[in-house]
Computed example of a mutant assay.
Amino acid sequence: MIVFTCAGCDAWLTSPVSQVALPVHAHQRYGHELLPALMEPGTYAVDPEPSGPPWRRWEEIGAEEAEACGVYAPVFAVSYGPPGAVAVALGDVRGTVLIRERCDGVCCGLDGRNGPNLACARCGRAVATLVDDCSYWQVVWLDPRAVRSLDVDAPARRVLGWEELREQPQRPPVDPVGVWSPVWEAAISVGLAHVLAASGGARVVVPDGPVADAFRPALDALLPAGPPTRSLVLAGPGLPATVTDIALVPRHPQSGKIWSSGTEAAVPLTADVWTYMAFSRNRRLRPASRGLPEGVYRDDPPPPPPSGPFRLDRELFLDALVRLPEVRRPWLRAVHDDVRDRRPDLPFSW
C-alpha cells in the first residue's frame, strides 16, 4: 500500500491506497445528472496520457507535433499537461483545502477547468483537482508534479485470479431505472475503435448474441458490405478455445493485464462488461441462502428493458480512435470524419 504526500512539505494527502487499472470511462461525460464515484475506496489509478491545461490548438502545432504527442487525427486542442495524473476517491483525500478562485463548474459542482483546485492544508501548494460537477464521474486527480508516493505498512489488496473475477458482481447493460449503463457505452465505444483498427477495413462478422447486440449496428454502418470478411468473437477464461480474426478479451480491473488469447488481434474490454457478455445467457441459478430450504431459488424480478436503442459514446470513440496510428489510413480516417461530422445514420449519441 502507498500514500500520496505533498512534494513541498511531505504532508499525507491520502489514506493508504492500492493501485488498480484506470477505468475506461475515467474521462467520460454523460447526461446532466450527478454520476457516482469513479474510484472504489482504497484504490488509485494512473492516467498515462497528458491531461489538463495548458492546451494547444491543432492548427498551432500541426500534424507532426501532434503525432509526437500520440494524437494521429485532427482534434480541437491537444493537452500539454503532465502525464501520470493519479485518480483517487474523494473519501480517500486528506489534508487539503479548496482554492476558492479555482472553484469553477457548469452546474452542480466543480469541473476542474482551471487546473488544480485543492491545496495542501499545511503548506498551501496546489496539489490536486476535485471534479464533482454533473455529467462527470466524481474523482480527485492528484497532480503528478506536486505529489510523491510513499510506501506504508498496511495490508495490500489481493489481486484476484481470472476465475475469481467471474464470481464478482457483473455490470448489466441496463441500469435499474431502465437506461443504458454509461460504463457499457464507454467500454463498447472504446472497444469499437480498436475493432475497426484491427479489421483492416474489411467487413466484420459477429455471431448473434450480446456481442452482436452491442457492436453489429455500428460495424455494419461503418464498414463496407460483402467480402472480404473478418470474424469477431469473445475469448477468455471459462470459454472454449476458438479460432477467430479478432477476439474480445477481458482486461483485469486490478492489474490492467489483458487476457492472452493467442489470436491475431485481441481487443480488451472492461472485465465486468466482458463477463456479462460471456456468461449472462447461460448463467446457472443459485440457491438462496440464509433460511430458505435447499432447492428454493430467489424470485428476483427480471432486469428492466432499455428505454431506447443502444447508443455509442461519440466523444470517447473519437478520443480512442485519434490515439491509434491506424487512423492515418484513408479508410479509417473517413470513418473518423463521418462520426466527427455526425453522419445521421450512425448509432452514436450526438
Rank of each mutant, 00 (worst) to 15 (best):
V78P: 10
P53G: 11
V93P: 00
E101G: 10
V339H: 02
D10N: 15
D220G: 11
F4D: 03
Y136D: 08
V3W: 07
A156F: 14
R283S: 09
A73K: 01
V24C: 04
V179D: 09
E164I: 13
H32M: 15
C123P: 07
L35V: 12
P250V: 01
G308W: 00
V3E: 02
Q28C: 03
L118C: 08
G201Y: 09
C120Y: 00
V147Q: 06
G8R: 12
A26T: 14
W184Q: 06
P305N: 11
V88E: 09
H194C: 08
G105N: 06
E101F: 04
I61F: 03
P303F: 01
T244Y: 01
W274C: 02
A11T: 13
D245H: 12
Y276C: 01
G91V: 02
W55L: 12
R298E: 11
R323H: 07
T242N: 03
I61L: 03
E326M: 10
A11W: 08
L318H: 10
M277H: 03
W58F: 06
V322I: 12
C69F: 13
L160Q: 13
A128N: 05
V204K: 00
S255W: 13
P301K: 10
V322E: 06
R94C: 06
D341L: 15
V88W: 06
F4L: 05
N117A: 12
L35K: 06
G291Y: 07
S255F: 10
D337E: 12
W259G: 03
E67H: 13
W184K: 10
L165F: 05
T5G: 08
P83R: 00
R94W: 07
P293M: 09
A235Y: 08
A247W: 00
L223P: 08
P237S: 10
A247D: 04
A221N: 11
C107V: 13
P172S: 09
L38N: 01
E60L: 14
A214H: 02
D153V: 15
I99F: 04
P210E: 14
N114G: 03
T96D: 04
P23G: 05
N114F: 14
S189T: 06
V190L: 13
L346S: 04
A193G: 12
F317Y: 14
H252Q: 02
A146H: 04
E163R: 14
E163V: 09
R203G: 06
P16A: 02
D213P: 05
N117R: 12
E64P: 00
E101I: 04
M1N: 15
T14Q: 08
G209V: 05
S181N: 11
P347W: 00
P217D: 08
D104S: 14
S199P: 02
A225P: 09
R333T: 02
A187G: 07
M1G: 13
R286I: 10
Y72S: 07
I188Y: 00
R56S: 12
G256D: 01
P207C: 12
P237I: 04
G238Y: 00
A63I: 03
A66M: 10
P16T: 04
R157P: 02
I61Y: 05
G236D: 10
P304K: 07
